[in-house]
Design a binder for these strands. Sequence first.
DNA 1: TTGAAAGCGGTACCAA
DNA 2: TTGGTACCGCTTTCAA
Lengths: 341, 341
Amino acid sequence: MTARMKDIALELGLSVVTVSKALRAHPDIGEATRRRVLERVAELGYQPNLMARSLVTGQTWTVGLIVPDLLHPFFAGIAKAISNDIRAHGYGLLISSSDEEPDAERQQIRNLLARQVDVIVLASTQTTVDGLREIERRGTPCILLDRRFAGAEAHFVGNDDEAVGALATAHLIAQGCRRIAHLRGPEVSTAAGRLSGYRQALAQQGLAAPELVMDLGPSGDHRGAEAGYAATRRLLALSPRPDGLFCYNDPSALGAMRAVLEAGLRVPDDIAIIGCGNLSYADFLRIPLSSIDQGAEAIGRRVAQLATSLAGTRNAAAPPHVDLVPPRLVARASTIRFPKG
Amino acid sequence: MTARMKDIALELGLSVVTVSKALRAHPDIGEATRRRVLERVAELGYQPNLMARSLVTGQTWTVGLIVPDLLHPFFAGIAKAISNDIRAHGYGLLISSSDEEPDAERQQIRNLLARQVDVIVLASTQTTVDGLREIERRGTPCILLDRRFAGAEAHFVGNDDEAVGALATAHLIAQGCRRIAHLRGPEVSTAAGRLSGYRQALAQQGLAAPELVMDLGPSGDHRGAEAGYAATRRLLALSPRPDGLFCYNDPSALGAMRAVLEAGLRVPDDIAIIGCGNLSYADFLRIPLSSIDQGAEAIGRRVAQLATSLAGTRNAAAPPHVDLVPPRLVARASTIRFPKG
DNA sequence: TTGAAAGCGGTACCAA
DNA sequence: TTGGTACCGCTTTCAA
């Protein structure tokens, strides 16, 4: 059926070993022999069976990636960047979407391990670090992505979420907001970090107002807009009402904006709104949405770099590499109260 | 290091073969023996090395997917659906993004073949069918996704693009448009199909106007908004100007909308605009954008089903399975000229 | 019902 | 520089 090394070796009157070495540019093969081999290989379009190679070398040249939602632009962007960058080093990417379900995630981890991936990159939906036991026991290097675990000594690449919260909040303060509310996200490290950054920025200016933190509930990004809408209606019922709003993510910010406009208030004059994620079409919205760009591509690139450097390693107790990609403010009409000029 | 079958067999005083059979619920293993094996396996958290298994069985339980852009919501949605559905059958998904570059795509095809994937799912960027030769020669089943090749006898899952074009155009006609323009996409089958559907719908009503077809250029989705903006400015210079506009995709429709509004015209009253793709936040735009929903999830599910059914097959000359997912009109403010009631 | 032997398609080691 | 042999971890075949 498909040609194997044995066939090529037979044709050329060589041994399998020689062909194998020639293919991998092994130094101790004669120039003439190598030429002959390479030529025949090219003619046949022969490619070595990577499964067989992996079985003996123990390396599969495959990175496993698990994200909560592949359709989410943040994770899709990361996946794309990882895929592109690791391919240049010969690695492939095995992807799965956990749908925010811890059990599904654990099962997928097991599957990736059974497939002998060289590294696992995980944006975890778990609440505890237990799900990582299996990976650790196996000695497979693991990179935590976007979401961290308190006290877990693992490699991490993601945003500095405190910086995200502080950046957004400081921007609102600079725009003259004094009662700044926050729609906080679900129980993952990103939400906690952003909340903490928000609090710090407020505290620094003596503007803290604990009653202005509203919980979006467990909806995450799925029904983010609805959750943002509902939470914002609750906020608008307060008196005095907030004049600035930092939302956990962009979908919730869109919901918030709808609630504010429906209430007959103006954005940003009455309430300035900023989200997080910098969704692609933010410029084309009714009111262009200010947002914090998380730098998905940069995160992906750094994951790729770390992954390829870790790939050979096994159980090597390298000190955890923590890579915090700085967030970037993208100010648009939804927060700009004092147009320049 | 990691436990192997041999270790378990030794511990239990059995042979490797017995353990292997017990694990796969082979009928000729005694109940007691199977219990013992399964118990020990559970204790150890043992998982068979899938590489080794694949090497002998010839099946890798892996589907390879190549898309032009993983960040594009259409492809991300498809990838997510495929991943979820095939996982239920024990398959994994190896993904790569070709970045619309035919050479990169060909290289990725070779890589997937070297990795012995059971099926290849390909949204091709190639203009000719030559790039598929390699796959065919190998006997690996291949499913074309979204983009077809004229005269290629391959499995295909995607939209009925003529229906897409006809649906959008008929909608504009129903809204009272009489001079309907089209921003046509790059040289792939989807653009050709949509153009053809557009023409048919117009011809049926005697509304054909060849001068109203503008080319977006090779930009595809990347710089779609800019291309849509530029093409629409050219359209607006015509006289009489168009009163309806069907755009190849949503980004170009957003660019078009900007151009129309900047020219001081109203949407939809002066010009109704419809796109294709039904991007997530279409409801939150300045003017909510009408669009054709392509049913990415449905496409993904059907690909998954076909892929798993094809996975065992090799070179089986099954008649090509062509699965056209019907598009769905999502009418919003950008085209609705006669509000009901 | 169980297991010894052979082999999947390669690579590593060492002798020729 | 070349190649024989063993082996990676598992499944298949067939005899016990």
